[in-house]
């Protein structure tokens, strides 16, 4: 992951988190995981289109989570709920 200033001649782009901005700002509803209910089946991790769920800890990166709600919808134990965050 290089973090280089753009080249003036050649239109090169470098992989980085946040290429589309701090996409957590897009979120209307926020997923919360209930650790007690979680069976670590990893479905939420595999189904996340934004790769914001950590493979080891299942921590959600709220800086980038867009709140699509797929994880909550697909969780077989209903261990993830979508909540409205207060300012």
């Amino acid at each position: 992951m290089a973090n280089k200033i753009y080249d003036e001649k050649y239109p090169v782009s470098y992989p980085m988190h946040g290429a589309g901005g701090k996409t957590g700002d897009w979120r209307l509803l926020t997923p919360r995981i209930d650790r007690e209910k979680c069976s670590k089946c990893m479905l939420c991790w595999v189904y996340c289109p934004d790769a914001v769920i950590d493979r080891e800890t299942l921590e959600i990166d709220y800086e980038y989570c867009k709140g699509c709600g797929i994880c909550a919808r697909e969780c077989p134990r209903k261990a993830i709920v979508m909540i409205r965050e207060e300012e």
Binding site: G18, A19, T23, Y47, C48, P49, A51, Y64, K66, C68
Partner: peptide, 17 residues
């Protein structure tokens, strides 16, 4: 992971998944 966090696709995008 080849998809970096914070890409510009819509929430719930099938292509990025």
């Amino acid at each position: 992971e080849v998809v970096m966090k914070g890409h510009g696709a819509c929430a719930g995008c099938p292509s990025t998944l």
